[in-house]
Design a binder for these strands. Structure first.
Lengths: 222, 222
DNA sequence: CCTTGTCGCAATGTTAACCATCTCCCCGGC
DNA sequence: GCCGGGGAGATGGTTAACATTGCGACAAGG
């Protein structure tokens, strides 16, 4: 009974946000592969909006790291190099470290229940794509439980790139992903529920290392 | 011998970036106090550009946390609450932790020399405002030395807010700031030069705690 | 007196057309 | 084969409008 009075934020969003959502989804669905050009006129025509909102949407996607743009050269879908993956891994590391500390110290039981709810959804996930979505949703829930606006923004800045990272991972090999990952996250949630910071930190670190080695360890050619 | 060939990045910037710089400077100079409204038409008139670049600039400033905007309600200069200060402090903590680790592990001697150069500039700083600018520049140099694109972006996302934070601090009390801070940073640079991760981490933590306690009053535990 | 509903203003959101500038690429000359 | 000029196409930026929305003022009603 903490905050039921908030009937609804109910704030409407701008057209640019919806355009950004459309483009983001198009990228994740594979319509625009890594390195593809995102032309303003083409997008504005396809989405039936003017170039203004499209420009804003591309700016937002650039902030999310999904897109990279250069002066007078337009926007292209980000390609993740091995160095990029290492950067994401290390930055994720410290961000999650803070998140876990905050969750253990200050999260409400409802927040942790929300995290466990995502784990439940994981058990029901059918294919790898759905599992990736749940994986991201799990971390979303953890950051939300930390109740730390700027930390969540920092996560948002790499969230889509991590999504891309996971998509690449399941493209490489889905062995063990569908079966091991739910149990791994269940342990994570349990440690958070028990407010056991040390155990949670160790589990999160192992979780990240798993994904990292799968992607960089086996075949490193490229 | 590493990268002297880079005569200059020399890439041109958009109008929006310059507009953002103007507005940012106006905010730091006090022309727009916390909570002030930033009207598009007013800014576009004052800077003699159209509304397009102004909108982009405001978006960029929002990404930097200097400005907050809501649907159909325009942009207002950010006001830092005590909770915000705590958030900045904790996030800065983990970010700097990663930065120090990366610097100790991978920074070149030139990078560290750049950090020390900023410390030299600190000794010559006359007033508190100049010192704040050097303080920020010091951290900029450290993050640059880490050679970690995403970490630097995460720092950029809170950099201006930390700047605001320090400005508030010197407004509260300049006692000891001008005298102690240069020495403190000299120690920091020395630890980095010696590649002593443990010492550097401890010094950075102490540095942050100093600023934090000055601003939040006497005692605070978190 | 406080509340509630309406109205109008001002600022933002969005569109369209237009011009300037830049990048890329092809093509011809050397 | 290499280099430079020019055209095509895209982005950057401007302007002028129109649509939408938040908010305060003001008046009517309990």
């Amino acid at each position: 009974m903490s905050d039921q009075g908030k009937v609804a934020p109910a704030r409407r969003r701008g057209l640019a946000d919806e355009v950004a959502d459309s483009i983001r989804e198009a990228i994740f669905s594979g319509a625009y592969g890594p390195g593809a050009q995102l032309r303003e006129v083409e997008l504005s025509g396809a989405l039936d909006v003017s170039r203004g909102p499209v420009r804003e949407a591309l700016l937002k996607l650039e902030r999310e790291g999904l897109v990279r743009s250069a002066w007078h050269r337009g926007a292209t879908v980000t390609t993740l190099s091995p160095d990029d993956v290492a950067e994401l891994d290390s930055l994720r590391g410290v961000l999650e470290q803070l998140a876990v500390r905050e969750v253990v110290a200050r999260a409400s039981d409802e927040d942790i229940a929300a995290v466990e709810k995502v784990v439940d959804a994981m058990d029901r996930a059918a294919d790898a794509h759905e599992m990736v979505r749940c994986d991201i949703a799990f971390h979303d829930a953890v950051y939300a439980a930390a109740r730390h606006r700027r930390l969540e923004e920092a996560w948002q800045a790499i969230r889509c790139q991590v999504h891309l990272f996971l998509l690449t991972r399941i493209g490489r090999s889905t062995d063990g992903y569908l079966s091991h990952i739910p149990a791994e996250h269940r342990e994570l949630a349990t440690a958070l529920r028990a407010r056991d910071a040390e155990a949670a930190l160790a589990l999160f670190a192992a979780h990240r290392r798993d994904a990292f080695t799968v992607l960089t360890g086996t075949t490193d050619e490229n």
